[in-house]
Design a protein around this nucleic acid. Structure first.
Lengths: 144, 144
DNA sequence: GGCGATAGTTGCCTTTGTCAACTACAGAAG
DNA sequence: CTTCTGTAGTTGACAAAGGCAACTATCGCC
């Protein structure tokens, strides 16, 4: 890969970093931090229902995570129920309030995306998705 | 924009967030934080040579930035010279040591990118760049 | 010359994140 | 069944990151 290409990719990275910086605000107007929002998302949508799974997925310190989870429980967004088959673990699940919050977060995030890509025609949207897919397919992810 | 599209874009965002989380480590093995690295980059390559410009570009608190800049000066990576035409401002520039550090950072970041997109043919690389460009061109950036 | 705005600094505080030690349990090996 | 190593999660102590407001000095303008 030549230098010109690398420079352009790094420019894209900077660009998309900027987008994120804007788009990562979907948790505002809720009283959740970004991490808390991502936790609700992982539990509620991707069914990662133990702390260990979250640690892997979000690459966060387990001590820190433990505290954040506690906070979510205190806010009645999250339940921790004992795992019957593995008594070390706790199963995480959203409370009804937690599910409401998650729905709200999703709504906000969707709105953000819709705003960022507003005004695209159907064809343009399809091409955009294809372009993203191309990028995704051609990144060589290191094995953790 | 339909829901299906939004879902896919959000998936891309999560994906690229993950990439960044890996790629943002280029400052490691130096004794710089990510913010310090980005500051050197902005000053050294994009000629943003006042604190105000950095505040805008990096969306960082001015009090915090002030301290970080001080730290960089203490490490002899940065110089602050009085601006003759505006005596409130200070012109920022890299010291020779700072330029060396920046070169090192660039090297690391380039390596990261090269690794992430390793093994692409010339044609694939061109298509990748085109795909990135397409994404970039079709985001509707809000006016700050 | 006076006044609101801007550049940057400093003190104070909260949030976020790291690290190591610790408890409790699991699973395998003898 | 005991012992040993590994994993799940918690807690305490601490460090780093960042936000907020007050302050000084200077600017540009009426």
């Amino acid at each position: 890969m030549n230098n010109e290409a690398i420079t352009q990719i790094r420019a894209f990275d900077r660009f998309y970093t900027r987008i994120f910086h804007l788009a990562d605000k979907y948790h505002l107007k809720t009283n959740l931090t970004l991490l808390e929002a991502r936790i609700l998302l992982e539990i509620g949508e991707h069914h990662r229902d133990t702390a260990s799974l979250l640690i892997q997925e979000l690459t966060v310190d387990k001590g820190y995570l433990s505290r954040v989870l506690k906070r979510l429980v205190e806010q009645d967004l999250l339940r921790q129920t004992p795992d019957e088959t593995d008594k070390r673990a706790k199963r995480l699940s959203l409370t009804p309030t937690g599910q409401e919050q998650l729905a709200l977060l999703n709504q906000r995030a969707d709105d953000q995306v819709a705003t960022l890509f507003a005004g695209l025609s159907a064809v343009e949207t399809q091409q955009l998705l294809a372009a993203m897919q191309y990028v995704e397919d051609h990144v060589h992810l290191p094995q953790d």
